[in-house]
Nucleic acid binder design. Structure first.
Length: 666
DNA sequence: AATTGGTGGATTTTT
DNA sequence: TCCACCAATT
């Protein structure tokens, strides 16, 4: 039995043991937030609350996974009925069970950003949108804003109204949903169908929300509906770490919660267990420049004399070299473990140089963020096949694969098929099927035959994936049947290695499916669940052994919730952080950029390094850079700055390392 | 009619 | 650096 009183501080103890009624926990950075949630779940189980009545929602898959794992270790129980998931996968789960009430099939496809972009382009074309107005990013924001009630139609954006309607209609016709729908549709079900809401209220009587400051209004409404009756809801958040407002996060939800659940118990966790005094003091000082925040005083018992290091270098190349070499030094000198080192950046494009340099210096690293394995073109092709096989009305997937590998179905043919589909209001797949029998069809007999073969593949594998043995094995046969490897060789005929590499990725993909399929803990090994799982985990979250022993290279956003002994923050320059674009959008975004900087520096447990370049290549151009203004918002006595260290030759570096090694062995 | 190769343009953060 | 669009070629 766990001695809760002994293992937790008084505030944490109160947070863990107050399981009836609404609770608001304001948890500063590093104050043991995850610990509180996991102990709280454990405490509930000890109080004989059934697993199936507990719902814990997080923001990222990584967090969900980690929480699950920690509860499992803490309790030693088999967690078969506990629900720990992200908002989006919880939404997907509800839709899987109930989406037929909205007229979709349960085999619906989930569109990621790429698919969404394709669809928007298609809709823009169909509505004859003026090419000058075609700004996909903007349209995406408007569509998302309207769907989630964040914005209204105005004179300015109403030109996109037609595209929006078209977009929505297409999704429905394709039996497809986008990321927003994963919250919008369950929310709609809850508000329109009281019996469904009642069913979920009875199931999930105890609800916990992690990273509450990152929830959107819509997500808030969703959980409010669910929790309103039983009122056992615990939200945990930190307004200082709200960094997703661009995606609809609304930290005012904390105030809404206070209003909607006035009987709440409020608990503040202010003791920081993560960082040393220096880092915490700098962070506190920095964040105090923000207005309109809940007052907090984070404190720690960890004294130290290490200052934050600020390093000036010439350009991004030198910056990367400094980081790579310094990592090698601290690994040798301070016996730091690679996986306890984090290299953080504001934007993905800063990662390329760092990556190359780490590679050259033999520093093992692991990326999170950036392109996911499942977003690689070759893998995405196969996924599109699988989606189309499960849901042939999914036009986006059909269009992606209809001529991949090349079968001789070109632009013209596709145009014809598309016209028929639009005229008759049917999907591309149905249109193909009707072309085959049409007397005056606009396509030649040769092409008809090709189309026949294409349909045969879809139908054949639809049957096989639903009825026969191993999913992974069937997919391998599919890849073989469509001659994908030959296609790759043709596409990259000037470089066999690329083709081989891509093919290996696909083989890896099928291996992943096989492992998932054979996992004894997997209660639901059907292909649809797998496709859903990977659509929702856009990032690679390796919890494999390979994760150990590697430096973590990631964006600040991706680093939220993580901690490292040593943190390098690269590109601490004006225009990068705060990001120029963010400020241009709205000068008040400076506060969010500051929170981002705050999140970055509070990832460090012991030592923090900030690097600033004098010049940097941005979009092919050399630009003179100036240090980030945030540097001046931290007490100067906590920071020591260095001019670039003299360049060392390869031999000198080797000699230094040899010396260090010698010192150790003495 | 399909494919290939060239040129120009663009890059915040993510479920 | 990578991707999308356009014109010439088979």
């Amino acid at each position: 039995m766990i001695d809760y009183k002994k293992e937790l501080n008084p505030e944490q103890y109160q947070a863990v043991t107050t399981i009836q009624g609404p609770v608001l926990i304001i948890a500063g950075a590093g104050s043991g937030k995850t610990r509180v949630i996991t102990y709280r779940i454990s405490y509930m189980l000890d109080s004989h609350i059934p697993q199936k009545n507990i719902l814990a929602l997080t923001f990222t898959n990584k967090a969900a996974k980690e929480m699950w794992e920690r509860v499992r270790q803490l309790t030693g129980k088999k967690l078969t009925n506990l629900t720990v998931s992200t908002f989006h996968s919880f939404g997907a789960q509800i839709l899987r069970e109930k989406i037929h009430h909205l007229g979709y099939r349960p085999n619906f496809s989930i569109y990621d950003t790429q698919d969404q972009t394709e669809l928007i382009k298609q809709c823009a074309k169909e509505t004859n949108l003026h090419p000058e107005l075609l700004n996909i990013g903007l349209i995406k924001n408007i569509i998302s804003g309207i769907k989630t009630d964040r914005i209204q139609w105005t004179e300015e954006n109403e030109v996109y109204q037609q595209v929006f309607l078209e977009y929505q209609a297409h999704l429905k016709a394709y039996h497809a949903v986008d990321f927003d729908d994963l919250i919008v549709l369950p929310n709609k079900l809850f508000s329109e169908q009281p019996n469904i809401l009642e069913e979920y209220r009875n199931r999930y009587k105890y609800i916990m929300i992690d990273e509450f400051q990152d929830t959107s209004i819509l997500q808030y409404n969703f959980i409010k509906q669910l929790a309103e009756k039983n009122r056992n809801i615990c939200v945990v958040g930190d307004d200082d770490q709200s960094i997703y407002s661009w995606r609809g996060a609304n930290y005012q939800n904390i105030m809404l919660f206070e209003k909607d659940f006035p009987e709440r118990v409020e608990i503040k966790l202010e003791q920081n267990y993560r960082s040393v005094q220096t880092i915490l003091e700098a962070a506190n000082h920095l964040i105090s420049h923000n207005t309109n925040r809940k007052d907090k005083k984070l404190w720690t018992g960890k004294e130290d004399n290490n200052k934050i290091q600020l390093i000036f270098v010439d350009d991004e190349k030198k910056e990367a070299e400094f980081i790579a070499e310094h990592i090698r030094t601290i690994v040798l000198k301070e016996r730091a473990a690679y996986h306890q080192i984090g290299v953080l950046v504001r934007t993905n494009n800063l990662m390329a140089t760092l990556e190359n340099t780490l590679l050259q210096n033999n520093v093992p690293y692991k990326l999170s963020g950036g392109k996911s394995f499942f977003e690689r073109k070759e893998v995405k092709d196969i996924i599109a096949y699988l989606r189309a096989i499960l849901n042939p009305d999914d036009d986006i997937s059909i269009l992606r694969i209809i001529n991949t590998p090349k079968r001789g179905i070109g632009r013209q043919t596709i145009q014809h098929i598309g016209d028929i589909a639009t005229e008759q209001g049917i999907s591309i797949y149905s249109a193909i099927s009707s072309i085959r029998y049409a007397e005056d069809s606009p396509v030649s007999n040769t092409i008809k035959k090709t189309l026949d073969e294409f349909m045969a593949i879809i139908e054949d594998y639809n049957y096989r994936l639903n009825n026969t043995g191993s999913i992974a094995e069937t997919i391998r046969e599919l890849i073989d049947d469509i001659n994908y490897f030959e296609y790759l060789l043709g596409e990259y005929r000037d470089n066999d290695n690329i083709a081989r590499y891509k093919y290996q990725n696909i083989m890896l993909f099928t291996d992943l499916i096989e492992r998932w399929e054979k996992d004894p803990d997997n209660l639901n090994p059907n292909l649809w669940s797998y496709l859903t799982k990977i659509s929702l985990s856009s990032r690679e979250d390796n919890t494999e052994e390979s994760e150990k022993g590697k430096v973590n290279l990631m964006t600040i956003h991706a680093a939220k919730g993580l901690e490292f002994d040593h943190v390098f923050l690269a590109g601490v320059e004006d225009g990068i952080i705060p990001h120029q674009r963010a400020i241009e959008d709205d000068p008040s975004n400076i506060e969010e950029e500051r929170r981002l900087f705050y999140v970055a520096i509070t990832r460090a447990k012991q030592k923090l390094y900030l690097t600033t370049c004098k010049k940097r290549k941005i979009m092919r151009e050399e630009k003179e850079q100036t240090p980030s203004p945030f540097l001046e918002e931290m007490p100067q006595h906590l920071i020591t700055s260095e001019e670039p260290s003299q360049e060392m030759t390869e031999e000198e570096v080797d000699k230094l390392f040899a010396d260090l090694k010698k010192r150790f062995s003495e």
